[in-house]
Amino acid sequence: MGAAPPSRGATLNQASGRFNLPARDADGDWLDARGEVDGEPPKLRTTVTVERPRTIISRNQSPDIGFDRSINPYRGCEHGCIYCYARPSHAFHDLSPGVDFESRLFAKPDAAALLRAELAARNYAVRPMALGTNTDPYQPIEGEWRITRGIIEVLAECDHPLTITTKSDRVLRDLDLLAPMAAKGLVAVALSITSLTPAIARTLEPRAPRPEKRLAAVKALRAAGVPTFVSIAPVVPAITDHEIEHIVEAAADAGALGCFFIPVRLPHEVAPLFRAWLDTHFPDRAGKVMATIRDLRGGRDNDPDFYGRMKGQGVWADLIRTRFRLACRKYGVTNERIDLRTDLFRPPQGDQLSLF
């Protein structure tokens, strides 16, 4: 197992114990170069593999999740957030949930065409579509692949409701589509902001846009009439929890309609990756952080049970919840609910019908 290079989130590229994958170096590109260069090996390259799925809409029946369908334009995420609960999914591709998750990405260029076909099905029943529920739809490669934009174009054409969760101000590149949808009551956006401290953000989410850029995106979206929220997810005890009030205040100043939070979750391979990250970046408090997380999670690194996984339990969960509620009250964040319209939906027309 090789150590991760700078600017990556994970410090390890360990194999998944669940699938008996072999351990691998953090970057296969380094292996051939080690004998040819002086000093440090070359930077880790990000690779993108085209994926051709048969369908594009993922469905879930989880009772504690507010959507029943979603689309993931990409697998893996270059933002490199160490806590990302989607990391374990890379093990299904015989890749590590560590550095591989951040550097060996998969793109689905047929997403818009697949979506059009699925929306045209006679038995399709409309409900809000969620983007950004697994990996970020506006990670850097979206600038080249524009798969997320293609998906939004189809949804806008059909007047289909949409929710977006992202850590990136790149969402503003699609404001020309989102603003008209918002005027019809068809879209809501959540910007994820976990820390306002540059040093923490650089290690916690090393390739995500800076927090101030995300706050500026909240302000710009609201100015364009797009219902926009701030997600303080996750709250990491003894690392970011002291910033709850500051983030709520900043969200209110940017015009966010509401805020919500989720305590950090460490499913499967995320837990050892997170522990290694703590040992590297916060060795002075690693034990305290993990002890508090276990208290939040009923004595475990992770609580996978419905409802509890989103809220945590015990005195620490109660304290975080109380502080959050008081901060919202202090800064006038009303957390008003947005119900997106479904009655405007029109199935996409085929090539022949569109001629008439």
Rank of each mutant, 00 (worst) to 15 (best):
P6R: 12
R8H: 03
N13L: 08
A15C: 10
R18N: 02
F19I: 11
N20G: 14
L21P: 10
P22L: 00
W30K: 07
D32G: 13
D38C: 01
G39S: 10
P42A: 09
T49Q: 10
E51F: 02
R52T: 12
R54K: 14
S58H: 13
R59E: 13
N60Y: 12
I65M: 15
I65V: 15
F67T: 08
I71K: 04
I71F: 07
Y74F: 15
R75E: 13
G76W: 04
G76Y: 02
E78K: 01
I82G: 01
I82N: 02
Y83Q: 10
C84E: 07
Y85K: 08
Y85N: 01
R87W: 03
P88G: 04
F92Y: 15
P97A: 06
P97Q: 02
G98Q: 08
G98W: 01
E102Y: 05
F106Q: 08
K108C: 06
K108I: 08
L115M: 12
E118K: 04
L119Q: 04
A120E: 11
R122Y: 02
Y124G: 04
Y124S: 06
A125M: 12
R127S: 15
A130S: 14
G132E: 08
G132C: 12
T133M: 10
N134D: 09
Y138E: 06
Y138P: 10
P140Q: 06
G143V: 06
E144T: 05
I147A: 01
T148R: 11
G150M: 08
E153W: 10
L155N: 01
H160I: 00
H160P: 00
P161G: 13
L162N: 03
T165E: 02
T166N: 11
K167Y: 11
L172P: 04
D176P: 10
L177A: 02
A179W: 03
P180F: 08
V187Q: 05
A188R: 09
A188D: 13
A190F: 08
I193D: 04
T197R: 15
P198S: 07
I200F: 01
T203F: 07
T203P: 03
T203Q: 10
L204W: 00
A208S: 09
P209F: 01
P211I: 03
L215K: 03
A216K: 14
A216W: 09
V218P: 00
K219V: 01
V226H: 05
T228P: 04
F229T: 00
V230S: 03
S231P: 01
I232K: 02
A233I: 01
A233L: 07
A233S: 13
V235K: 05
V236D: 02
E245T: 15
H246V: 09
A252Y: 02
D253V: 14
G258N: 11
C259M: 04
F260C: 07
F260I: 03
F261G: 06
P263C: 05
P263F: 09
R265P: 02
A276I: 06
W277V: 04
W277Q: 03
L278H: 08
F282I: 01
P283E: 09
G287L: 09
T292C: 05
G299V: 11
D301N: 13
D301F: 13
F306I: 07
Y307W: 15
G312Q: 03
Q313W: 00
Q313G: 13
A317L: 11
F324I: 09
R325Q: 13
R325K: 14
C328H: 04
T334W: 00
R341H: 05
D343Y: 03
D343H: 09
P348G: 01
D351W: 06
L355F: 12
L355C: 05
